[in-house]
Design a protein around this nucleic acid. Structure first.
Lengths: 134, 134
DNA sequence: CAGTTTATTGAAAATATTTTTCACTTAGGT
DNA sequence: ACCTAAGTGAAAAATATTTTCAATAAACTG
């Protein structure tokens, strides 16, 4: 993730390294505060502001995705974990990639045709309880 | 919407009437501030706090749904406009109900089986440009 | 490898959003 | 008409996010 940051013309700084390292280790979606807590061990002076800036940047570059939950609204997950669609555990925050949503394409196409919308992206989130939280 | 509020044991007050009237006239999703602006003509002293309380209540009772957009996070739409799933215009904020997502059921079932999750609800939002905004 | 430039940083302040508190008001049963 | 509890709005508090700015440090230059 870091090297590609540089390829895109951004500097690979200590604070960014720390954030990326934390995100690389997490297999969950994380709120900005949580990213800060996990990244601080790798770079003590890290500030929340920089976390916000870094996750925004990584989201723009496509390495992270925003997720939306009903109550507390915003979090981030590594794109490679969710690969387009999210399956989120309501209690333990685990984010699981789920396979096989090519099934969705015909639905989206049909809807485009019926409504005239140009559908640019879609957000499919399944929320529930993972096996161990049930 | 109002009469059913009463049936649920809540009082039908002037501020609530104003909010409901605004929502009834809107065919869009609205942010709390926007609800306030549209409802004030019907009840001048209306406060933003009451808008928050009223949309939360109406959401609990099922008359509204929360929607999530990428940038500014939360808005509300009348449930009858979205009937389960949203098709949102990125620029004009129009919310269109889209038909026929029974197709989604097999996908959800398969995912439950594959992952062991108990899927409690799902959120499918298509975001793009409506015909007139293209 | 020192010097320089400029992106990036963290703290503080500003802005935005949502919730809580509380004294006052009013809906709706009596 | 009265009573009473639910509901109200203003202000304050709590949260969340963005902006500003002087200081720092990547990484390019020679």
């Amino acid at each position: 993730m870091g090297s590609r940051l540089q390829e895109s013309g951004y500097r690979l700084t200590q604070p960014r390294r720390a954030v990326i390292r934390a995100l690389t280790e997490a297999n969950d979606w994380l709120r900005p505060e949580e990213v800060l807590a996990l990244a601080r061990p790798y770079w003590r002076p890290l500030g929340l502001v920089t976390v916000y800036r870094t996750v925004s940047l990584l989201t723009e570059l496509g390495y992270l995705k925003r997720v939306h939950l009903e109550e507390r609204c915003v979090g981030y997950v590594r794109s490679d974990l969710v690969h387009g669609h999210h399956l989120l555990c309501r209690t333990c925050h685990q984010a699981v990639e789920f396979p096989g949503t090519e099934d969705l394409a015909p639905l989206v196409n049909r809807i485009s045709q019926d409504t005239g919308f140009r559908v640019e992206h879609h957000l499919l989130e399944l929320v529930g309880l993972c096996p161990s939280c049930q």
